[in-house]
Amino acid sequence: MTKVKITVGAINKDAGSSRRYKTGGWRTMKPEVDLEKCVSCFKCFDYCPDGAIKKTDEGIEYDLDYCKGCGICAKECPVEAIVMVKEEK
């Protein structure tokens, strides 16, 4: 973890600095999207608790630095374009 010098009153001015911590390491299952099937409804984007899905022109893209592998996206995808596969370590 990044060490920083303490601030007065523990006020943290480094907004969004949680991104330094990569929660992707927690994952045991990994999502894979079939962009051929994806209809860009972006339900997965809205439901993802971790903001680990980005919208793209082709559909979506995962930010595996943060995906915890919860599987909500795969379960909620209305066209079954996402599958969860075992994470290779």
Partner: peptide, 14 residues
């Protein structure tokens, strides 16, 4: 932002 430490699948994150 991402990188928060809620459990996988936590409804609060969403």
């Amino acid at each position: 932002a991402s990188g928060h430490r809620a459990c996988a699948g936590c409804g609060e994150g969403t």
